[in-house]
Amino acid sequence: MPRRATILGATGFVGKRLHARLASDGWEVFAPAKGDPEVFSRDLGTVFYCAGLTADYDARPFDTVAAHATLVSELIRAGRFERLIYLSSTRLYDGMAKATVDETQPLVFDPADPRRVYDLSKALGENLTLARTGGRGGVARLANVYDWEDGAPGFLSAWLIAARDGGDLTLDSSPHVARDYIHLDDVVAALVVMADGEAPGIVNVASGELVTNAQIAQVFAKAGRRVTFTGAARPPAPPNASVARLAALGVRPASVKDVVARYLGEGTRA
């Protein structure tokens, strides 16, 4: 009998790729539309909670809270699932003045900062998942996820999509900006592993390496492609998220520099 999964946010960036992977692996996948009341009445199996707002969270604070906390609260109260994997973000570490952080360390937020609605609502979703599911919940804190499919969000995704046309590139950013990047396929692999065995608690789904724009540009240079940046800002690097727990699950994401090198070497095909 096939395993049953429910993906909330199945039409989004991560949810769509996860849906394809689970279906390929033989799972029976329920991908409800937004507002479908069936999520409170049918057996959901393993729930992958991929719903959320990213780029426009500041302009839509109340929708952000509803997507990150209200819906998962109602889902947990209904209790019609075997396992719940809640997708969060390593952005929750940004308020911590530490070079390296792991999943055990308490988070730090300024509740008076209006831009923290993303972090605080995600943290509430995490709390409900970990504390109110009777041991059935796990949290995946995702780093900066990238891909080169049309419509893939994020700075690096846009960079790689623009690179398809060949030639040199000029980007509206600074070479000094550093982020932890993880490819979409590695994220999906981690989520599938987290659905097995005992509830994993919190897991940083990241590469464990902060990489600057300049370092990625060097990969382009080796492929004969020049990248110019219009900015020169030197923002502080975010904390580096430990990936020891992810490695213990058997998932070791590829380095972004290696993935980009392969992408460029294959002719930047979509």
Rank of each mutant, 00 (worst) to 15 (best):
P2D: 09
R3L: 14
A5L: 12
I7T: 02
L8P: 02
G9T: 03
G12D: 05
G12W: 02
K16L: 13
R21F: 11
A23Q: 12
G26N: 15
W27N: 07
E28Q: 15
F30W: 14
F30G: 12
A31N: 06
G35M: 08
D36P: 08
P37A: 10
S41Q: 13
S41P: 00
G45I: 03
L53P: 13
L53T: 15
D56P: 02
A59G: 09
D63R: 13
T64D: 07
V65L: 14
A67K: 00
T70Y: 07
I76L: 00
G79N: 05
R80Y: 02
L84D: 01
L84K: 13
S89M: 07
S89R: 09
T90V: 13
G95W: 02
A99D: 14
A99S: 12
T100K: 12
T100Q: 10
P114C: 07
V117P: 06
E126W: 07
T129A: 15
T129F: 05
L130M: 12
R132S: 09
G135Y: 07
R136S: 11
G138F: 03
V139P: 00
R141H: 12
L142A: 11
V145H: 03
I161F: 04
I161Y: 01
A163I: 10
G167R: 06
L169T: 08
L171I: 15
P175K: 06
A178C: 11
D180T: 04
I182D: 01
I182K: 00
H183N: 08
V188E: 05
V192P: 05
M194R: 09
A195W: 01
I202P: 00
N204E: 05
V205P: 06
A206M: 11
E209F: 01
V211P: 01
I216P: 03
I216Y: 01
A217C: 03
A217Y: 02
V219A: 09
F220C: 08
F220W: 00
G224Q: 04
R225F: 04
V227M: 07
T228R: 15
A233K: 01
A237L: 09
P239A: 10
A241C: 14
S242I: 01
S242Y: 00
S242E: 01
V243F: 11
A247K: 12
A247R: 15
G250C: 09
V251L: 06
R252G: 06
K257M: 15
K257V: 14
D258H: 14
Y263W: 13
L264C: 11
E266H: 04
G267Q: 02
